[in-house]
Amino acid sequence: MFIAFFRSGILGFGGGPSTIPLVKKEVVEIFEMMDDEEFSDVLSIGNTLPGPIATKMAGYIGYRVGGWLGLVTALIATVLPTVVLMIVLLASLNEFKDIDFVKGMTKGVVPILAVMLGVMTWDFLKKSKKSLGWKTGFLILLPSFIAMMLLGLHPGIVIAVLLVLAVALPIKKKEGRNK
C-alpha cells in the first residue's frame, strides 16, 4: 500500500487532480485493491468533501483495505513526497537566498500572489452580490474585516461565528435581478 500511494504522490506533479489517474493505476490495475466501479465511487465521494482529493482518497482506500494501519500508511505515503520536497526546496532557497537571481525571484512572487488574491477576492465579491446583494455582503464584509485586521481575531474564529450566525439568522437569497 505504501508503494502505491508513494509513487502516485511523488509522480503527481500539479496537485491532487493530477494524482487521480496515478492512484487509479496503482489501486485498480497494479495492486487490484478495488475495481473500476469502486474507485469511481471513492472519487465521487472524495469530490463532495472539502480538502485535498489525494489525501481523502488515500485515507479512505487505506482504511478500506487495511483498517487504521492502512489509513495511516496511505496518508503518510501520499504526503511524504511533498514534505520531503518542501524541506529540500526550502533548505536550498535558504542557502542561495543572497544571490541576486534568487532575491529577484522571491520578490517577484509577492506581486503575483497579491494579484491572484485580488482576483479571487473580486470573484468572491461578485458571487456574494449575486447571491446576497451588495448590502448584505457589505454587512458581512465590514465586521469581518474589522475583526481580523483591527482586532487581530483569527480568520477561523470569524468563519465559525459567521457560520453560527448563518444557521441562527438565515439570510434570504436575492432572487431576480440584483441592483
Rank of each mutant, 00 (worst) to 15 (best):
S128P: 05
F138G: 08
K25I: 03
L11M: 11
E26I: 00
M120V: 14
I3D: 08
F96I: 06
S131Q: 13
S144K: 03
P17S: 00
T82G: 10
V109P: 06
V23K: 03
K135T: 07
I76W: 12
S144F: 11
T73W: 02
D36C: 03
V164F: 11
K179E: 14
P50A: 10
L113S: 15
F39E: 00
G176D: 08
I99G: 01
W122F: 15
K126I: 04
P81Y: 10
A58P: 06
L90F: 14
I146E: 07
G104M: 13
G152P: 09
A168K: 14
A91L: 13
L90V: 06
F101W: 10
P155Q: 12
D123I: 07
G152M: 09
L163T: 12
G152T: 06
A91E: 10
T19S: 13
L151M: 15
G16I: 00
L90G: 06
L43Q: 08
G15Y: 01
A58F: 07
K56E: 14
F13E: 02
V158S: 10
L125K: 00
I140D: 02
A114D: 14
G16A: 06
G12Q: 02
V83L: 13
L151N: 04
I87V: 13
M33R: 01
I157R: 05
K107G: 07
N47R: 05
P17R: 02
L71A: 09
G12C: 00
V109I: 15
L43S: 08
I76H: 02
Y60V: 01
V115P: 02
S128K: 11
P50T: 08
T48I: 02
L165W: 06
E95N: 12
L89R: 05
P155C: 10
E175I: 11
P111W: 11
G59V: 02
A147N: 07
L49Y: 08
G9F: 12
T136E: 08
S40A: 15
M120I: 15
E37A: 13
E95Q: 14
L153P: 04
W122T: 12
A91R: 13
W68A: 08
A58R: 09
G15D: 02
T82Y: 01
M120Q: 14
S128Y: 05
F39H: 01
I171V: 15
G67W: 10
K172S: 15
W122I: 12
F96Q: 05
V102Q: 10
L80N: 03
V28H: 03
H154W: 12
F138A: 14
K127H: 07
A91K: 12
L113F: 14
L151Q: 11
V84D: 01
L125H: 06
M105I: 15
S40C: 09
I140K: 09
G108F: 10
K130H: 03
L75Y: 07
T19W: 04
D41I: 10
G9N: 09
